[in-house]
Design a binder for these strands. Structure first.
Lengths: 205, 205, 205, 205
DNA sequence: AATGAATGAGCATTCATTCAT
DNA sequence: TATGAATGAATGCTCATTCAT
C-alpha cells in the first residue's frame, strides 16, 4: 500500500470516528483501529491529534468543493446555480452523515482551539455562494443592494441549520426536494430584482 | 450570600470559561477560580461538569427568551416582530460574546454527548420565529406556502452563521443595522405575499 | 439530651456504619445521618474519624468484657468457664453482626493504621481466656505444659474464624450449640490433664 | 522483559505496598514506584486497584497452596500432615510478613467490598485441612464425631491468630517450634481417638 | 452546643505521544 | 515503514474537617 493510501485511509477513519464521538471523545486508538493500523503509525502521517482534524477538514471539504464546482460548471444561470449549490449541499450532508457532523460541530470548535487556523477551504466553499451572487448581480438578476458577504452567510447558515437538524434527529420531517423548494422560494424571491422575480416565479409554477 | 446567588455566580463563571476555552478544555478549577469559590463548592450546586453546561444552556437561553419575548410583546405587526427578533438576537450575541460562543459551539456538541438531552429551551427559543410566521400567515401577510418549520430554521441559521463570524473575527465587517437591513430585505421580500411585499418595500425606501 | 447520650448515640451509629461499609468506605456524613446529628456535631465529641473507630472498639468491647465477666462470675469450674466464654462470644457475635464485623475486620486494620494504638481493651478481653487457663492449671485441671499465652490465641482464633464465616455467609451451617460442642470437644480434650479428660468426656456422654 | 514478568513484578510490589500501608492507604503510584514502572503501565495489566488486590490473593495464595501441597505429598500419616501444614503455614507467615499481612487483613475486607468475590483460592487452602482430617477419620485416627467443616476453621483460626500477633509485634515471644508443639499438643490430643492419642503422646515424648 | 455550607488536598484513571524493536 | 508497550502528565470528583452563624 502506498503512503498516500494509508494517509487517506486514516483520514476517512478519523472522519468516521470524529463524527461518531466528537473530537474530544475520539481516541487515537479508535482511529487506528478503524483504519486498521497501529497507534504509532498514525504519527508517521500526522503530527498530532489536532493535525488529523485539520486534515479531515481540508480533504473532505476539498472533495466537497470539487463536486459542487463540477455540478455548477454545467450551468450558467445564477438562479439555477444557487439551487444546484443548495441541492448538492443538502444531498451530500444527508448522504454522508459523518461529514455533516464534522462540518457542523467539529469545524466550529476548531476555530477556537487554534486561532492560527483559518479554515481556508471552508471559506473557499462558502465563497462559491458569493461568487454566484456577484455574477447574478452583474447580470442584473440579483438585486444590487444585496451584499454578497452577508447574503452568502445567510444562505449557507440556512442550509447548515436545516441539515444540522437532520443529523441529530433520526426521522426527517421534510424531503430534500421540499426543503429546496422552500429555501429557494424564500431566497430567490428575496434576492431577485422585481422583474426577474416575476419571471422566475412564473417559470416555477 | 444566598445559595441562589452562588448558583448563579457559578453559572456565569462557567459561561465565561466555556466560551473562552470550550467545554472540554475548561477545567473545573478554572470555573471555581472565576466564580471565586472552592472546587468542591461547585459540586454542592451541580452534579458534574456536564450538568453545569446543561444549566448554562437552560439559564442563559431562558434569559434570552425572556428578553426577546418582552420586546416582542410591544409589537403586533409580524413583519416588525421578525425584525425585532433578529435585532435583539444579533445585538445580544454581539454584546455577550461568551453567550454567543456557548450557543454557537457548545450547544451543538451537547446533543451528541447525551442523547437524552433535548435542548428544550433552545427549541422554545427558535419556535418564537415559527410562531411569528404562523401569526403572519393567518393575517395574510406571510405567504401561505411557507412552511414555518423550515423557515424558522432558515431564518435562525442565517442569523446564527452571521453572528458566529462576528465571534471569531475580531473586527466586525458590518454593523448590526446594515446586517438587519440585509437579512430583513431578503427574508421579508422572500416571505411576504406580493401585495404586502410592495407596500413593505416602499415603506423601507 | 445529655452529652453522654449523644456520645453514645454516635458510637452506636458508627458501629453500624463501620460494620456495613467498612472504615474506609464509611463517610462521616453517613454516621452523622445514622446518629441524626449534623456532620459538625461529631467533631464536638471526637477528634477525627479514626478516633471514632478507636472509641467504638473501647466501648463495644468494654461492654463485651462486662457481659462475659458477669457470666463467668457465676461459675468456678475452669472447664465450664471456658465453655461459657465460647458460648457468650459466639452468641453475641451471631446476635450483633455489626459488632462482629467491626471486631473481625476493622480491629485488625487499626493496628496498622496507628502503631501507638495498643488495643488494650481487646487484649483485656482475650486475657480472660488465659486467666481461666491459668486458674485451671493451678487447680491441676489443665495440662501444666500448656502455655496460656499461646493457648488463649489458639482458642480465640478458633472462635473468631468460625464467627467470621457466619458474618459473611448468610446461611449458618451449624448452630451455636453444635459448634460449641465441637470446639469444646477439641480444646478440652486437648488441654485437660489425662484424668480430667476422662472424667469430662464421661460427663459429656 | 516479558509481559508475564511485568505482571508478576507488579503483583509482588503490590503485595509489599498493601502489606505496609493497607489497601486503602496504598496509592497506585506507590505500587508503580515499587515495581519500577509508570503508573499507567499498571493499567495495562490490571483493570483497577481492586483487581490488583484480587490478583495478589489469587497468585500469592496459589503459590502457598503449591508449596504446602508439595510438602504434604511426601507424607501419608494424617497426624504428621496436620503438623506439616501448621509448620509450613507459620514458617511462611513468619518469613513473608507482607503476605501474612495481606492474608490476615486485606483478605478479610475484600469479602465485604465485593460480594461476588468468593476467595476460591483461600477456600481451597483451608480445605486442605479438612481433607487431612477426613482422611484421618477414614483411617480411624481422628475421632469420627469431629466435624471437619468446623475443625478446619478452628485449626486455621488458631494458626492465623497466632501469626497475626507475630506480624504486629516486632518481637516474637515464641519460636515456631514451641508454637507448633503447643498447637499440635492441643489439637492432636483433642482430635485423635483415645488409642491413637495415647500412642501419639508417647511417641512425642 | 449545634449546624451544615464551604473548603481544598488528594488520588484513581485516562490517553496522546514516544521509541525500542 | 510499522508496531504497540510504556510512559507520566493531567483532572474530575470526593470527603474529612473547619468555622461562621
Amino acid at each position: 500500500m502506498k503512503a498516500a493510501d494509508k494517509h487517506s485511509k486514516i483520514i476517512h477513519a478519523a472522519t468516521k470516528v470524529f463524527a461518531k464521538k466528537g473530537f474530544f471523545n475520539a481516541r487515537i486508538s479508535d482511529i487506528a483501529k478503524e483504519a486498521k493500523v497501529a497507534d504509532g503509525t498514525i504519527y508517521l502521517y500526522f503530527n498530532n491529534k489536532f493535525d488529523i482534524l485539520i486534515s479531515v477538514f481540508e480533504e473532505e471539504i476539498g472533495a466537497l468543493i470539487e463536486q459542487v464546482s463540477q455540478s455548477l460548471a454545467m450551468e450558467t444561470d445564477p438562479r439555477k446555480q444557487l439551487e444546484i449549490f443548495a441541492t448538492k449541499h443538502l444531498t451530500m450532508m444527508k448522504k454522508n452523515k459523518n461529514l455533516a457532523e464534522v462540518i457542523q460541530i467539529e469545524l466550529r470548535q476548531s476555530t477556537k482551539m487554534i486561532k492560527e487556523y483559518r479554515n481556508n477551504k471552508f471559506s473557499e466553499y462558502i465563497d462559491i455562494i458569493s461568487t454566484i451572487i456577484k455574477t447574478g448581480q452583474a447580470q442584473g438578476i440579483y438585486r444590487a443592494d444585496i451584499k454578497p458577504g452577508i447574503a452568502k452567510r445567510a444562505f449557507f447558515g440556512a442550509l447548515d441549520e436545516i441539515s444540522r437538524v437532520w443529523s441529530i434527529s433520526l426521522e426527517t420531517e421534510y424531503t430534500v426536494e421540499e426543503t429546496i423548494n422552500q429555501i429557494m422560494g424564500i431566497f430567490l424571491a428575496g434576492m431577485l430584482v422585481t422583474d426577474e422575480r416575476t419571471r422566475y416565479t412564473l417559470s416555477l409554477s
